[in-house]
Amino acid sequence: MNIKNLSISFIILMVTWLLLNGNLEIITIISGIIISVLLAYIFCKKCDVFSNIKFTPKAFFYFIIYFFIFIVELIKSNFDVARRVLTPSLPIKPGIVEVKTKLKSKIGRIILANSITLTPGTLTIEMKEDRLYIHWIDVRNDDINEATKQIVQKFEKYLEVIYG
């Protein structure tokens, strides 16, 4: 039995249920527990999505840092988009580059791809094993190592600790 997967999916479902209801009455909590246990058991009997998450203090600390870096990058990316859209000459130099990642776990790669999509000027198009193909709105360097350094590594060093 994978208690870890089941309990994480149970917690996610329960928190969603409580946020959706917006009260803490006894009937809400009881029905929420019943539904969450059932759903977690039915849909996550064999899943291994969450097995690689680590619950150490260091991972938690890195998660907080990662979250703030992510928010800053999201805001930066939006100002970047706004600048490009508002400039009359449309300063873009697009292309698809290839980068590689060191992350092994599935969920780590998913989070990495989503983070790349939301950061300045990059969009994940395809992922084949440890290679990611990224559409870059302003290609500065199409060499694989340089592109990896510029796009992936700012997230990777945190995600490596959190998800392995």
């Binding site: 999201l74 939006n78 706004a82 490009r84 969009l123």
Partner: peptide, 17 residues
């Protein structure tokens, strides 16, 4: 924007934030 990929970039990013 001139092509599909650039449109996806600007469209989804700005609309998310």
């Amino acid at each position: 924007m001139p092509d599909i990929y650039n449109r996806i970039q600007t469209g989804t990013k700005a609309s998310t934030l």
